[in-house]
Design a protein around this nucleic acid. Structure first.
Lengths: 230, 230
DNA sequence: GTCTATAAGGGGATAGAC
DNA sequence: GTCTATCCCCTTATAGAC
């Protein structure tokens, strides 16, 4: 499912049928609103997006939408949280047991590319937020992303210590993986023009994943089991 | 100079002193306005930026600024043009005579990183514009950037045909170079948090250049004369 | 939960004096 | 070229009926 169900806290342990009905309806609305908001924030930016446009795309009135999300900021924050959650989930691929570093990194890169294909608008909203100085997100980056990332940095450092990777700075490696994969969501307008296509296809994302994996793994001296054909 | 002098067309071949005086004063104002606009558009986005804020940072009134740039859109377009011009100039490093492919690519990557350091706001405005679907820039990408890029794509293809690079898609290689270098401008807010610094230093950009050059050149099978220490 | 109406403020752009 | 004044539209958010 593209939009995960949130707001679980409204479901108490003693659930009455009426309450369930209520919550389901509410979730359905919230889900549609969040989907519309992600699209509109991505296309017009925070200030360019209007509640009217979002509401229309979600199929309700602006005033009605404000019943579900009390303010524009609250809606925006939720969109940001969602994509950060999804990206942080994907980091689990780096700590899968029983895989070599090259496979783990390849799985992570491929997952990030897949997310650029399936959730481009979330990526765009996130990117625009960072570009603007992350006023609504710096706390989450510091308090949620960074601690999780530190573990992965230590992991990469251990791989280097074991001689399985070239001695590179793990943090810059992550900047490289993030930028090369997310650019296929964030800069799709430019990439489409250069590739001469109205829309990027699944094949284009596969090309991207193959090239990024090849260059990064070979570039950091990680052994791949079999070299992919380009 | 950070902001190149534009609007050369107002200087006719028969220049009178008074006219020169006039033009110099105008250019000085326009230059300050463009610098301020680049900063404000980068921080707040097109719709979030206000003429009042830009004018204040440039040291004049909003109404006075509108004497130099007739509309917000016109000012914005000029900011976009400037950074695209600078980036296109940097592509000349790929066609320098008497250099091997690895050196040319390294020079280009290093120049792009240097521009991320010296003109981060131009990069941010450009990035936000592409994220929003490039409504003001798609014509320029198609008509100015793409033809220039086609030459560089042919060049990379010839290197591949000569066996000097792995058989990669040149277009995706450029997407990789652009994303990895521009991320140090566009995503500086996130990178600063992760590196634990209030501002990125020249040393951070040097670290980035070294890692990107190492990984990409090694990753595409380009021979480097001497492997840089990490 | 959904509607109509409206308050309240912001911001781009123009008019016209100096 | 620079200033004061102002027009006019857009947008967020609230009030209150149903």
């Amino acid at each position: 499912m593209l939009f995960r169900q949130e707001y679980e806290m409204s479901n108490k342990s003693t659930v009455k049928p009426k309450m369930t009905q209520y919550s389901r309806s509410r979730k359905k609305h919230e889900c549609r609103i969040l989907k519309a908001a992600e699209e509109v924030f991505a296309q017009f930016g925070y200030n360019g997006a209007t509640l009217d446009t979002i509401a229309e795309r979600a199929g309700l009135s602006k005033q009605n939408m404000l019943y579900y999300f009390a303010s524009k900021q609250q809606l925006y924050q939720k969109v940001l949280q969602n994509i950060l959650d999804i990206w942080m989930d994907s980091m689990a691929l780096l700590t899968q047991p029983g895989k070599d570093p090259a496979s783990k990194l390849e799985n992570y890169i491929r997952r990030k590319i897949e997310l650029s294909r399936t959730r481009p608008n979330g990526s765009k909203v996130f990117a625009a937020e960072i570009i603007n100085g992350a006023p609504h997100l710096s706390a989450d980056i510091k308090n949620r992303l960074l601690p999780r990332l530190e573990e992965d940095i230590s992991l990469v450092e251990s791989w280097i210590a074991e001689g399985r990777l070239d001695p590179i700075d793990p943090r810059h490696l992550f900047f490289m993986i993030w930028s090369t994969t997310q650019t296929y969501a964030d800069f799709s307008a430019q990439i489409e023009i250069i590739l001469g296509k109205p829309e990027l296809t699944a094949g284009d994302f596969e090309d991207a994943a193959r090239l990024i994996t090849h260059v990064i793994l070979k570039g950091i001296g990680a052994q791949q089991k079999e070299d992919k054909r380009l």
